[in-house]
Simulated assay, not measured.
Amino acid sequence: MSNKAMINTEQAPAAIGPYSQAVKAGNTVYLSGQIPLDPHTMELVSEDFEAQARQVFDNLQAVCQEAAGSLQDIVKLNLYLVDLDNFGVVNKVMEEYFQAPYPARAAVGVKQLPKGSQVEAEAVMVIGD
């Protein structure tokens, strides 16, 4: 596909496998899952869930900006939580990063995430509308 571009920024954690931080196809950007790694140390920012959630959105924001967009351009957000009891906390943190109209969203409970993370988020962003 000739209109496909890989998005990569040093302001978000490097991919820890054979994937891109994001792929832009036309005016749609598919953002890979972000876990709460500090982009410089590649270590979890904290054991605290709320701190982890903030870092996940900071990482997503960095990739959005590299693709000439912002969190507000996200149309679909998928959240993966090791403990669904953190649902309320992630909602509170999301309100700090997003304004209405909010993206469509799914929140899924999972058994385990990479590097012992408690939360991961992936997204689809549309830019240039």
Score class of each variant (00 low, 15 high):
residue 70 S to G: 12
residue 4 K to F: 09
residue 96 E to N: 13
residue 57 F to S: 11
residue 108 V to F: 09
residue 104 A to H: 09
residue 34 Q to P: 00
residue 28 T to M: 10
residue 78 N to E: 03
residue 74 I to T: 06
residue 48 D to K: 14
residue 14 A to W: 02
residue 98 F to L: 13
residue 104 A to F: 15
residue 74 I to R: 01
residue 75 V to A: 02
residue 43 E to D: 05
residue 55 Q to G: 09
residue 37 L to K: 11
residue 96 E to Y: 08
residue 82 V to T: 14
residue 65 Q to W: 01
residue 86 N to E: 08
residue 37 L to I: 04
residue 18 P to N: 14
residue 106 A to K: 13
residue 67 A to K: 01
residue 33 G to P: 08
residue 89 V to E: 03
residue 110 V to Y: 12
residue 109 G to W: 08
residue 42 M to D: 08
residue 84 L to C: 13
residue 30 Y to P: 02
residue 86 N to K: 12
residue 77 L to C: 12
residue 65 Q to N: 11
residue 72 Q to P: 05
residue 17 G to V: 04
residue 43 E to G: 03
residue 63 V to W: 02
residue 61 Q to I: 00
residue 13 P to T: 03
residue 48 D to M: 08
residue 76 K to W: 06
residue 27 N to F: 01
residue 122 E to V: 12
residue 13 P to H: 03
residue 48 D to A: 04
residue 53 A to I: 06
residue 36 P to M: 05
residue 76 K to F: 10
residue 101 P to Y: 07
residue 78 N to T: 08
residue 85 D to F: 12
residue 96 E to M: 06
residue 84 L to H: 13
residue 27 N to I: 09
residue 10 E to S: 07
residue 72 Q to K: 06
residue 82 V to F: 10
residue 111 K to V: 09
residue 58 D to W: 07
residue 81 L to A: 15
residue 123 A to T: 05
residue 15 A to I: 09
residue 38 D to H: 10
